[in-house]
């Protein structure tokens, strides 16, 4: 299987993502510069974290109009698996591949800490190695991760079982106190309708290696990558 990690000016988590992919598959992914216009034969496309284009205008807004994005939108329509983390999630939102918006964190602070996530719908290629309702602990590192959706979008997400993760406490309670950034309904990550695309603010790639605080991201990467190998 072949994995592409797309990089933009200001991307800074591509090597963390590459390490997690290599740990899972034994193979290094290709790092692809955003000026490329084709992505041939990739089974998985990853949009990693960072601060593309200095977060100008809105986070991910500039990257959403990069040359590579036309191809990513075409691949999304074809059903190629796409995984966006943090700034990558913001890009998927800004291209409207995923619905909703990401606002400034409710407390206006850049939040960098470990959080707990409850796995919601785990009947997907991405999360099949997680148990529904189980809790994973992974880091977040963002200033604009406050997920917002209109009532229409929220009812669509519910009707199609598109919520992947919610912020919760260590016991799995989804509460206001456990809501890291003010996201509506504690939403931390969502799928597209077909469940071929996952976008999330937290960084599971930084919870995979032995020196990291937890390795709770490992089953997620195994789910994402194993079915494709």
């Amino acid at each position: 299987m072949k994995t592409a990690i797309i990089t933009f000016p200001g991307t800074n988590r591509e090597n963390d993502m590459a390490a997690a992919v290599k740990l899972t598959t034994g193979k290094s992914p290709d790092l692809i510069w955003h000026k490329e216009t084709t992505l041939e034969n990739y089974d998985l496309i990853i949009l990693p974290g960072g601060f593309s284009y200095g977060d100008y205008l809105r986070c991910g807004a500039m990257a959403a109009h990069s040359p590579i994005m036309k191809e990513i939108i075409a691949q999304a329509e074809k059903g190629t698996r796409i995984f966006g983390v943090c700034n990558g999630f913001q890009m998927l939102i800004e291209t409207r591949i995923l619905p909703g918006a990401l606002l400034k964190n409710k407390n206006l602070k850049f939040i960098c800490k470990n959080v707990h996530l409850r796995s919601e719908n785990t009947d997907t290629h991405f999360t099949k190695h997680l148990k529904e309702g189980s809790v994973i602990e992974v880091p977040v590192a963002h200033g604009d991760g406050n997920y917002f959706a209109t009532p229409d979008i929220l009812s669509d997400l519910a009707a199609n079982d598109q919520v992947a993760f919610r912020y919760c406490d260590a016991q799995g309670n989804v509460s206001e106190e456990a809501n890291a950034n003010g996201s509506i309904d504690n939403i931390a990550g969502i799928y597209n309708k077909r469940k071929t695309i996952l976008g999330m603010m937290p960084h599971p790639e930084n919870a995979t290696l032995s020196h990291q605080k937890t390795q709770d991201g490992v089953p997620l990467f195994e789910g994402i990558l194993n079915g494709l190998m």
Binding site: A61, A101, I153
Partner: peptide
């Protein structure tokens, strides 16, 4: 397309 995000 770019200057505003019509969702918000």
């Amino acid at each position: 397309q770019l200057l505003a995000n019509p969702v918000i």
